[in-house]
Simulated assay, not measured.
Amino acid sequence: MELPANVFKFKLAAKAADTPLYGCWLGLANAYTAEIVATADFDWLLIDGEHAPNTVVTILDQLRAIEPWPAAPIVRAVNHDPALIKQLLDIGTRTLMVPMVETGEQAAALVAAMRYAPAGIRGMGAGVIRADRWGSVADYATRADDSLCLITQVESKTGVDNVEAIANTDGVDAVFVGPADLSTNMGHVGNPGHADVQASISHVLDVTQAAGKAAGILAPAEVDTNRYREAGFDFIATGLDVVMLKTAADANAARHRGGLPAADRSTY
């Protein structure tokens, strides 16, 4: 059996220079809703293990639900724990996002957690893991790196200061900006549009792309999506399933209780 391809890496390599890959955050921790979103025309979907009530098992269920569809799955770990990273890789995660990366040393440790010895410390589970199709992928241990992708999140002033070391770490494929955490860490709570925050975001973008790596960002507001697309980000999260459901539910309830103009109510 062939080594499973990393669809996200393939899409990044194949995309037009001026057209980012658009994605959606999955925070409902449910395979059924993940499959619904997978039928939309997103390039990638992020299964959130940091702020959603996910476990390794619920993440596995969502990977299975998304797999038949074109959208490339990404899994975000809750932390840097190499034991958890091992489990996420073993269940078939091929693109891993890790939050709060602040130094080159942390980035290198994450790379090591994703690689087998002698290049890393990933525990060997050959023959009993979904990633190698339970022993059906020949030489999986020596070829696994070809199917893996590591995205490091820069979400603090320290991370911005050290982004050159992070982006230039061998084994890091992309750097993703978290505007909410970054603005909060910089003292501009709830204001990622602040000039200082925007300057830091531009710096991360420039340094990351200068290192030959892809740069991504979360931008559910359309004005931000447009701004970051024009800036040249390679992949952008434009939606969050939790927010989309909440927004639609609020609008529906308001429409039928008279909270919206009659013209709006009639369009449902």
Rank of each mutant, 00 (worst) to 15 (best):
D132C: 01
G159V: 05
Y140S: 01
V111C: 02
C149L: 14
T158S: 07
Y116P: 01
G135K: 03
N162P: 04
V154H: 09
V172C: 03
R133P: 00
T158I: 07
A113K: 00
A109K: 03
M186R: 09
E155K: 08
F176Q: 06
P179Q: 12
A167V: 06
S183E: 13
A144N: 05
T184L: 09
V172N: 01
V128R: 15
I121A: 01
V128N: 13
V160T: 04
A174P: 11
T142R: 12
F176E: 10
V160K: 03
D139Q: 11
C149I: 05
G135C: 00
V175R: 00
Q106L: 00
G171S: 10
T169S: 12
A112E: 11
A138M: 14
M124R: 12
D146V: 05
I166M: 02
V172K: 12
N168Y: 14
I129E: 13
G135T: 10
V137P: 08
V172R: 03
A108K: 10
R115Y: 03
Y116L: 03
C149P: 11
G187A: 11
L150K: 06
T158Q: 09
N185Q: 10
I151D: 04
V163Q: 00
M186Q: 05
L110G: 00
V111L: 03
N185M: 10
A167E: 01
A107T: 08
M124P: 09
V137A: 06
A119I: 01
A108S: 06
V175T: 14
A167N: 14
T103V: 02
R115H: 04
G187P: 05
E105N: 11
R115P: 03
S183G: 08
T142H: 13
A109S: 04
A126E: 11
S156A: 03
I151H: 08
E105D: 09
D139N: 15
A144L: 08
M186Y: 05
A165F: 03
G127M: 02
A126Y: 10
A138E: 13
T184W: 10
Q153E: 06
T152L: 14
A113S: 09
K157E: 13
T103H: 06
G187I: 14
M124G: 13
D145N: 01
G190W: 07
V189T: 13
R115S: 10
G104P: 04
M114K: 05
A113C: 01
V177E: 02
C149H: 15
T158V: 13
E155C: 00
T169K: 04
A174V: 06
M114D: 02
A108D: 11
V163E: 00
V154F: 10
D146I: 06
